[in-house]
Design a protein around this nucleic acid. Structure first.
Length: 285
DNA sequence: AATAGAATCAACCGCTCCTTA
DNA sequence: TTAAGGAGCGGTTGATTCTAT
């Protein structure tokens, strides 16, 4: 089934935004708030696609945006989160206050990927055969990585969780009655596929990722993420359970970033140890 | 000073997911 | 149940800037 384009491109401005366009967009959002991107350009008097407006606002015009000067702490966290999450830029960005997925993605591609690659090579040279945690490639990357491997470049892989993050509204949870019902595989994912493969809890817990990608999500009304692997879905609403949420800036940046990473790691370590009920409760606390 | 190649990053594209009627 | 629209995400592109020669 094809889809109509998000907007007619005829007569639309493209390319870099002008200060005038920025002002129009900012004024409109100040007055009316975010959202309704499709109709926003028309209402704001902009000759831009709604997607373009959204991107401009989210990545550059939002008042809480930090630009440039990615510090060593942030850099370190990006690298570590990337080793856990892969190219889930929005998830990574959600844990770096003021940073956008686009900025992190660009920073990774231009700086960090090389850095990581070089350090991986050093590790290989120093410890031949030693295990190193590197990202699991996504579909497109995999092809290239396979080619790298075939060129004789050894890529050492350890278990990396690569959940497919899917936005889920609280309604999804209600529909399926309980988290446990989802864990047991009785829910359908967004593709409409029923994932009930007769999995037991241990299998389902292979992927307990539930991180909101919205800083202001709340436990009842916020969005949550569903992890999706080959076998199971798992749903929870988690964001406010993070005591180091992005709203808590009282801690030092360094401590906060470390805690973010530690919690992600802890989730991974715990997933195969906790009984289901305990695990679910730990996420909801 | 001029040029070429590399690096950077804002913006676009296509796809997927969620919601709604 | 299903189709369509809105929104978000990750990959890619291309213009601009930087650096080396």
């Amino acid at each position: 089934m094809g889809r109509a384009p998000c907007c007619s491109k005829i007569g639309m401005n493209r390319g870099p935004w002008t200060p005038k366009e920025d002002t129009l967009l900012m004024n409109y959002i100040e007055a009316h708030g975010e959202g309704h991107w499709r109709s926003l350009p028309k209402n704001a008097g902009l000759l831009r696609c709604g997607k373009s407006c959204r991107l401009r606002w989210l990545n550059y015009l939002r008042p809480d945006i930090k630009r440039g000067n990615i510090g060593p702490d942030e850099e370190d966290l990006i690298i570590r989160l990337h080793s856990l999450l892969g190219n889930r830029w929005s998830l990574i960005a959600a844990r770096l206050p003021g940073r956008t997925d686009n900025e992190i993605k660009n920073y990774w591609n231009s700086h960090l990927s090389k850095k990581v690659k070089n350090s991986a090579k050093n590790v290989q040279n120093n410890h031949k055969g030693a295990s190193k945690c590197v990202q699991v490639p996504n579909r497109r990357q995999k092809k290239n990585d396979d080619q790298d491997s075939s060129n004789g470049e050894m890529i050492i892989k350890t278990k990396v969780h690569q959940p497919k993050a899917v936005r889920v509204s609280p309604f999804s949870i209600t529909r399926n009655n309980s988290i446990e019902s989802m864990v047991s595989g009785s829910s359908s994912n967004a593709d409409g596929n029923n994932n009930n493969n007769g999995l037991d809890h241990a299998e389902a817990l292979n992927c307990p990722w539930l991180w909101s990608d919205h800083k202001d999500a709340d436990i009842n009304g916020g969005e949550a993420l569903v992890c999706e692997n080959n076998h199971s879905d798992f749903v929870n609403d988690y964001d406010d359970a993070c005591y180091f949420s992005c709203q808590n800036y009282s801690e030092t940046t360094e401590n906060m970033l470390d805690k973010i990473y530690e919690e992600y790691q802890q989730l991974l370590e715990d997933e195969n140890e906790l009984p289901l009920d305990s695990f679910v409760k730990s996420l909801l606390i």
